[in-house]
């Protein structure tokens, strides 16, 4: 089987959200002598791009997106150690600390974003929901994050986003990170008023925004 055919099989396996087929495709490509990074770039990522388009068009939904992401992550668990061994590990796009702010227990939008960030090449630390503001600050410092991304669904929890920015300023570290916000209760106006570096109205806007901010 030629390399192009192997890449197409991998792409289709991702689109089908078939983890077993993805792992079999990865094994076949490695056995054929394809570089791990090439497998990712030409097999897995094109499949994820299609998944992303289908999600945007509402042809598929969060469960399918998650299944595809899990299949991708399973493949990466095989490929990443080989990339490291070879010394050809390219840098991630950026490091993101992500969470839903204090008092807010909503997770679905944040979970979608986590998947999309990861499959777009970012390294993500998901702090979960109802996150204490200093957890954002401390984790960003610990992992030397590029971006702090905060979600808030409720109007009554919006202030949590402002407080994180204020805490960063208080510690003199505001300029070290790009801070982006989103969630049902947020607007561009709110982002401007608290001095965030960006606001996204959807998960895909957030990916584009983050990519722009780290490039």
């Amino acid at each position: 089987m030629g390399h192009e055919e192997l890449f197409e099989q991998l792409k289709q396996a991702i689109i089908a959200q078939d983890e077993d087929a993805v792992l079999a495709g990865v094994d076949a490509a490695l056995a054929a002598g394809v570089e791990p990074k090439t497998i990712i770039d030409q097999g897995l990522l094109p499949g994820l791009n299609v998944i992303g388009e289908q999600f945007e068009c509402e042809d598929i939904f969060l469960p399918e997106l998650m299944q595809a992401a899990l299949a991708f992550q399973a493949a990466m668990a095989v490929l990443e150690p080989k990339i490291k061994e070879s010394g050809n590990a390219g840098p991630k796009k950026g490091k993101i600390v992500l969470g839903t702010v204090k008092g807010d227990l909503h997770s679905i939008g944040k979970n979608i974003l986590k998947l999309l960030f990861e499959t777009s090449g970012f390294e993500v630390w998901d702090l979960g929901i109802d996150v204490d503001l200093f957890k954002f600050v401390d984790k960003a410092k610990e992992v030397d994050a590029d971006i702090i991304a905060m979600s808030a669904l409720l109007t009554t929890t919006l202030v949590g986003q402002r407080d994180v920015i204020e805490a960063l300023k208080g510690q003199g570290t505001r300029e070290r990170y790009k801070v982006i916000i989103g969630g049902g209760a947020t607007t561009q106006g709110w982002a401007d008023s608290i001095g965030a570096d960006g606001w996204a109205g959807s998960a895909y806007e957030a990916i584009n925004l983050a990519t722009r901010l780290v490039s």
Partner: peptide, 12 residues
Amino acid sequence: PLFGGYAGGAEG
């Protein structure tokens, strides 16, 4: 229940 979330589409 969220359309597009864990429930998926119309049927879900």
